[in-house]
Design a protein around this nucleic acid. Structure first.
Lengths: 322, 322
DNA sequence: CATCTTATACTCACTTGGAGCATAATTGGA
DNA sequence: TCCAATTATGCTCCAAGTGAGTATAAGATG
């Protein structure tokens, strides 16, 4: 049956089939003291990665093996992000191609076992414009907006100029538009297109103006990190994945701080509690903390049962009775 | 810089790196007279697919080339679905692996150019249990429920038995639970696990009981089709992708019928209109139809501008003012 | 014991979504 | 000719959900 599958499409068009190298890349996220952290290797300028090998039972197993080997960190929750295959990813005209399969993984920083080859870095080292917890970061009106507008004005045609202004405005919330924390990837790609990030001007000699703040990474790792952040910021809204990043017991404020760190935005405390409680996501342990000042907070734990009971779903279609 | 990227992770663990074959597979969707259609090849038992070649400029280009070549159909909207790499996907112990990168594409059936090698088949030929437009299909209470319950009872342990019943119940809406149209993949995988679909018993001689209704496909194509349907059913709720399947002008009822066909559920007409209109997704052409009986309907066209203006977004986080 | 700080409980207005009804504009016969 | 059937479209009502803010509770600190 399997062989028939191949025979069915033996009608080749043009070029010849070939082999490719397959790379696995991980965006590993955990909460650290310095905010939402990504696990890095090298000089904190690369994500854990490695080739997919014959010994790997599956893509996920291969990924786990690489991360564990490079960082001593065991992974829990994993989901696939995206598969890239840009022709010039490795450069050169070798008759070989690199396919990169990227994953998002969530853990707790303490789950590392081996020595500390691990290195957690805050997301916001790489994307300083993404943290809006203390209002709009000054880098946006101070640096990004003028340079993006300059880029827009560089456009040859008038239509193109307006289109660039609009894209930048939507992505970064210019002209009184709302900030949308999910557009992490669009923002990075816009900055890349405008040649404002270092990755975009590498190799080419015309480094006109200095790159904007934000640590660069090798190859396209920063873009993959942006993809992971965007996915996570979106997913926490409709699936209870935050709890993968929480300790076994926690207070509601700690939970809120985590969501705030991930989304880069401050939340309304009473409404956040109502949201969590009415969804039955947590249950009281009976204990309380008295870590610091103020009234002691009840401790909660995640109700793992919800994963079975419900499928969060949530229709937005106006269904009919009949 | 690129070369440094490779050097950074030159710490190989166990097995040796190797080359892999990369396959592209497309779930191409369009509306046909017989409901929501998927483009098939062969004896309507395979999705268009082919190897990723050196001549392809990118994954998407490769996919377009293969679909066009195999079906004479030009694609519009494309998005990546998932990348598979099961070791035994092609079987045998060759020192070679197959990576399958799948895509979802939306078009209109008329967009075919070449001869009619194309073959549109209704989704519901492959997944008869997914169409709930005329109520719960009889196959569910009549065939699936008893056989799934029998499978659950086969479980060795009591805990496992309860767990199977619950999974089946949630997926198929047993015991008064709501039907969730997005769980297409979970349902197929459950039926696979219970060995009720033909794909699950291929090769193994112990074909105990006859497979359930629903046309099988080669290899794991039916699973990929399920993945595509699930993605589309989810996406129409928060992104205006339905319009990719509509003719340039249409009535609101035609639009509703399309969404109903995709989601497999009937919608509440007044509320559907309200939803569409208040989102400014369409604009009147000024014309009306008088196709059949009844009051003539206004014709609308999609407001392509919305794609630029807005980023549908929609926060579910309780943001704070400050 | 007053004050600061954090936790937790409620309130209120407003928006959104589900359901159904009323009216309009056609076609096709009785 | 005019009623019946059929589809389109507009509108109302109510309940649930969400945004925003206030009030009270329970500790620590000096």
């Amino acid at each position: 049956m399997q062989k028939q599958a191949i025979a069915t499409r033996k009608e080749e068009p043009s070029g010849k089939a070939h082999d490719a190298n397959v790379d696995l890349i991980a965006v590993v996220v955990a909460m650290t003291e310095h905010g939402p952290g990504a696990l890095t290797v090298g000089r904190a300028d690369a994500l854990p990665s490695g080739p997919f090998e014959l010994s790997h039972r599956s893509l996920q197993f291969g990924l786990r093996a690489w991360v564990e080997h490079q960082t001593g960190h065991q992974l829990g929750y994993i989901e696939q992000l995206y598969t890239f295959a840009d022709r010039d990813r490795i450069g050169e005209q070798r008759q070989q191609r690199v396919i990169s399969i990227s994953y998002l993984a969530l853990t707790r920083a303490e789950h590392a076992v081996g020595s500390s080859k691990r290195a957690w870095r805050s997301w916001y080292d790489y994307f300083p414009w993404e943290d809006h917890r203390s209002g709009v970061p000054s880098i946006i009106p101070g640096i990004l907006q003028p340079r993006l507008l300059a880029w827009a004005d560089d456009a040859g045609h008038d239509v193109e100029r307006r289109e660039r202004r609009q894209r930048a405005g939507i992505a970064f919330g210019f002209d009184g538009r709302d900030w949308n924390e999910e557009l992490v990837l669009q923002r990075y790609e816009l900055l890349y297109e405008a040649a404002l990030v270092e990755e975009a001007v590498r190799g080419s000699e015309l480094s006109a103006s200095p790159p904007i703040p934000g640590t660069p990474m090798i190859a396209d790792h920063r873009r993959i990190l942006a993809t992971g952040i965007a996915r996570l910021r979106s997913k926490i809204k409709y699936r209870p994945v935050v709890f993968e990043l929480m300790p076994p017991v926690f207070t509601l404020l700690q939970l809120q701080r985590t969501v705030e760190a991930l989304s880069g935005r401050l939340l309304h405390k009473p409404n956040f509690r109502r949201l969590i409680e009415q969804q039955d996501l947590v249950e009281e342990t009976g204990e309380t903390t008295s870590d610091t000042v103020g009234r002691p907070a009840k401790l909660f734990r995640f109700r793992h049962a919800v994963l079975d009971e419900r499928v969060v779903a949530g229709t937005k279609l106006p269904l009919s009775r009949a």
